Simulated scan of single mutants.
Amino acid sequence: MLQNQPIKRLGGWLLAPLAYLILILLSNTVMLVLYGMALSSETSRAQLLAGSPGMALPWFVSLLTTLGMWLFSAWVLWRFTQRRRVLPKLYIFWLLVGVLLAIKTFAFSPIPDELAVRVLLTPLLAAALLAPYFTRSQRVKQTFIE
């Protein structure tokens, strides 16, 4: 980058990936609140622990996956706002993790196929649009320089 060029601020089309990141973080927060409500309710906790391990184990794995994705999303958001140089690759990796989690939901969750396709479609569309933007955009290259 040339010395006489001003540092680009977060703005323009970069607000769309930022908004998507914040929405995913908020949806993971809602999911964690729901998990917390289920764990704090004595009846639901008793049903979960009294059931077969085949029922409780996927529930706890899902809880840990949601917590991990929340932490990862918060870290990516923090890096995004600091305009770190590593952010474009980190954001693309975050998008791919979201796609993998959606594929896991599609393949292993006992939900109707229509809902599973909707769950899969959003991360696929986001990755298809945002990954090329983060790899090729001059705006991205000029913004994430710290």
Rank of each mutant, 00 (worst) to 15 (best):
M1A: 05
Q3E: 13
N4P: 09
N4L: 07
K8N: 02
R9H: 13
R9W: 02
L10R: 06
L10E: 07
W13I: 03
W13A: 11
L14R: 03
L14I: 01
L14S: 02
L15N: 14
L15M: 15
L15A: 07
P17I: 02
L18P: 06
L18T: 07
Y20V: 15
L21V: 10
I22G: 04
L23V: 12
L23F: 11
L25Q: 13
L25E: 10
L26T: 05
T29S: 11
V30P: 03
V30Q: 02
V30W: 02
M31N: 09
M31Y: 04
M31K: 10
L32M: 05
L34N: 08
L34C: 05
Y35S: 06
G36N: 08
G36P: 10
G36L: 07
M37H: 06
M37Y: 09
M37L: 14
S40C: 01
E42L: 05
E42V: 00
T43Y: 00
S44Y: 08
S44E: 03
R45D: 05
A46F: 06
Q47P: 02
L48F: 06
A50I: 00
S52N: 05
G54W: 10
A56S: 15
A56N: 10
V61H: 08
L63C: 10
L67W: 06
L67H: 02
L67A: 08
G68W: 08
M69N: 10
W70Q: 15
S73F: 00
S73M: 04
W75S: 14
L77Y: 06
W78D: 09
R79I: 03
F80W: 13
R83M: 07
R83P: 12
R84T: 08
R84I: 01
R85K: 15
L87C: 05
K89W: 12
Y91K: 11
L95C: 08
L96F: 09
L96I: 04
L101Y: 15
F106N: 01
F106C: 07
F108N: 11
F108A: 11
S109I: 03
P110N: 15
P110A: 13
I111W: 11
P112W: 06
P112M: 00
D113Q: 14
L115N: 09
A116F: 01
R118T: 07
V119Q: 14
L120I: 03
T122V: 13
P123L: 11
P123F: 07
L124G: 15
A127R: 03
A128P: 12
L129W: 05
L129Q: 00
Y133F: 14
T135Y: 08
T135K: 11
T135I: 01
S137M: 02
V140H: 01
V140T: 01
K141T: 00
T143M: 03
F144T: 01
E146Y: 12
